[in-house]
Every structure is written in structure tokens, then in C-alpha cells.
Amino acid sequence: MKKSKYDGSFYLNPYLGGVILGTVLLLSFYISGRGLGASGAVKNTVAATVNVVAPQHVEQSAYYCQFAGGDKEPMSNWLIYEVLGVLAGAFISGIIFNRLKLKVEHSPKITSRRRLIFALGGGVLFGFGTQLARGCTSGAALSGMAVLSFGGYITMIAIFGTAFIAAWVLRKNWI
């Protein structure tokens, strides 16, 4: 536990981190009535991009037209601003705890290339899953749990339950 604050290996006590995260979540509900999220910003950006490239396509698509096209402004969105804030907040924390460094983090047993391929694949699956489940670990599971949403709990159990099994299958990539 005695790690120097300056070699990048110091982390907050996880319970303190949890209390901070929970308080931020609570404030988010108090101020805006919404929880925290991340994947919604991706959805809005994709919809906005497609809207610029092929507006007719947005009008025809049963999925895009829910939040893009017409007079809707998918880019002017709470979630986009929040994501920018997340990047800034992480950057500040990186400065304080001396963790800013461009690198690919991976297990010593695998190559960077393999790590990046798996990260990409994981991102694709996660992106797909967030749309189906209407939210990710923060938006659906964490924020959902805070307001006792049944769907939030179901999503949380499905994510962690599956990840537990899948992580053991893929354990050579990690340990």
C-alpha cells in the first residue's frame, strides 16, 4: 500500500473512489435528473455523422430517425459535453498522480498488436451491446442501479456474469 504518489502507481482507496463516484452520480441526478453515461455520446456522434453524409438515409432508418434528422440536433447534447468533461477529468487526475503517458497497456505475455486487436474487437462488441441494451455499464447499469431500475440491474448482472466467463476463456490475454 505504500506506493509513491509520483511513480504513477498510486491509486485512491477504492472505497474513497466509490464514494466520489457515487457523489458525482448523485449530483448528476440532483442537477439534471439524469445519471452519468458514455455510450450515448457515441450513438449521437454516429447519427450526426451519418446525417451529414447521407441525410436521406437517416430519414429512412427506423433507428437513426429517433434521434437525428429533421430539426433534431444530435451533437448539441448533454452526453457529448459530459464526455468532454470525462476526458478532462481523467487528464487532471493523470497530471496529479503522474500517469500521463502514451502507451499500450498489455500483459507481458502478449504483443501490443494483439492487445490492440482485442481492444478493437471488444469496442465493437461493446458498442453494439450498448445500443441493444440502451446503455452501458455507467448509463444503464450504474445509473440504473442508483434509481433502482429493474433493467439496470438486469443489464449489470448480464454484463458482469458474461464477462466473468469470457475473461476465463480469454485469460491468456490478461495473466
Binding site: 458514455a38 450498448t130 452501458c136 448480464a158
Partner: peptide, 21 residues
């Protein structure tokens, strides 16, 4: 969709090691 989406995300989680946030 919550269950199926959650399962897909779980696999993505184990592959990528991250969630969006």
C-alpha cells in the same frame, strides 16, 4: 434486449478490458 445486450457487452468487456466510461 437488456439481457442480450448485456451478454454482448460482457464479451466485449472481457476482450477489451474496458467499458465506455
Amino acid at each position: 434486449s437488456a439481457i442480450v445486450g448485456g451478454i454482448i457487452m460482457g464479451i466485449g468487456f472481457a476482450m477489451g478490458g474496458f467499458c465506455p466510461g
